[in-house]
Design a protein around this nucleic acid. Sequence first.
RNA 1: GGACGGGUGGGUGAGUGGCUAAAACCAGCAGACUGUAAAUCUGCCGCUCCUUGCGGGCUACGGAGGUUCGAAUCCUCCCCCGUCCA
Length: 484
Amino acid sequence: MPDAKQKPAQQQKSVEEQLAYLRKGAAEIIREDELKAKLEQSAKTGKPLRVYLGVDPTAPDIHLGHTVVIRKLKHFQDMGHTAIFLIGDFSAMIGDPTGQSETRPPLSREQVDANAKTYLDQVFKILDRDKTEVRYNSEWLGKLTSYEVIRLCGKYPLARMLEREDFRSRLESGRKWEELRRGISGLVKPGRQHGSEPPESDRKLDALRRGISGLAKPQSIAIHELLYPLLTALDAVQLQSDVELGATEQKFNLLVHREIQREYGLAPQVAFTMPILVGLDGVKKMSKSLGNYIGISEPPNEMFGKLMSISDELMWSYYELLTDFEERVIVRLKEEVRTGVLHPMDAKMQLAHTIIASFHGEAAANAARDEFQRVFRNRQAPSEIEEIHLKLQGNVISVERKTGPNLRKGTITGPLTNIQKWSSLLHGFAFVSSAAEAERLMKQGGFDVNDEGVRDPSAKLDLSHSATYTVRVGKKKFLRIIVE
RNA sequence: GGACGGGUGGGUGAGUGGCUAAAACCAGCAGACUGUAAAUCUGCCGCUCCUUGCGGGCUACGGAGGUUCGAAUCCUCCCCCGUCCA
């Protein structure tokens, strides 16, 4: 048998097997029969498919939501096909209007470059670095002449472009908003009398107002946003791709790409979409700006805690989209939970462990699991807590803050004595956003010193003699304070 | 170019001269219950000071001025946004 490394994996798997593997978790494959034909062709000629994923480096960190589609790219890579990771460094400067309720501020060149770099480091936690083709679309888009841009625009009708949901709803909401507003000003507004039942017209008014508040505020569309799908279509042309991956929200873009490829005399690519990962809140899509995300570079303990906090229902889509468990295994787990054989919490722990292991390794995942049990099941303080060393020196308190390998130093100044209020100290460490916030926590029982609740917001810490305090602030923040 | 309408706290949005640190809803936070889940219930939710009190001070309703004992609310100018007509 020849060396396995020489032999592409696809030759070892039948087209049917490949399809089954690739299909897992997919939202839509347009069109599946074309994909099958391409796979067959590839198997026959031994020429791997060119599969690409384009990403705009709009934010420096990638989170689990981004990994769904990157993992699918890896699946193609596993099957021996060519994975192309395209960095939309040029298109990012336009900004994808997809899912945007307003025009985004364009990114600067510097931001894009910086983001692209950190992006790649993280991407290769999933993809095989040696087998991945990395491209930047500024390479060709940056060289376009305005003549070429105009020619490109000539290949796609405006009406089609405006069909897309993002644009349509932005235009539509403006119109509706105006209509309702007219309705409101049409009603006379009588002075409302206190204590009396609101008159009929007032109720109408309220109903209209509620109607308005349900609508998104109208947002303008800038012309350059129309260009986004067209320009990125040139990526597909340039790369001569067979398959393009994207989240479901990218469907429109992917379809435009397909058509433009045809216009340029190429065989249209398969548009392969993946579902959007729901964030920790269980409702909205995972995104950094909503704060409901798990970054893939986050420390294992952090990831574990966040994963455990997702709802039981959500767990299953995470299993589907973030692990390599086979479909039938997931179905069985689900069944076991349903029948009570398996506790949902244990299923979730396994999920968390699996995901963390894929980014940080088995050992780190084990450690994170043990730590989780320790802190939350047994309600003990974490084994490693942030330490803050305090020293009163004359008029200032020097603060040394040890966070893992990082060491921060600072001082708290002001009218100082040996006796300091906890609330202002906590604020001084930037542990809470304001002293008022700290006082609030204390009043509500969210503050312990050495396992004893401290409720008095004016409670103080004596700095005159050395001591060590273990402090809990809120549900999950712990701190060790060492007075020197 | 013309005619309308709008800009209030993290978001939506009420509020047309004092009773408004500003309703309501959402988000967020804490507590209870738990499986750090969900759901539910309770409380909190600008900053700051202290003697932590239905306490004092400061800042806040696009921006700048003005009227007034008093302005998110009235006036002037400016900036921004939307709709319709051309």
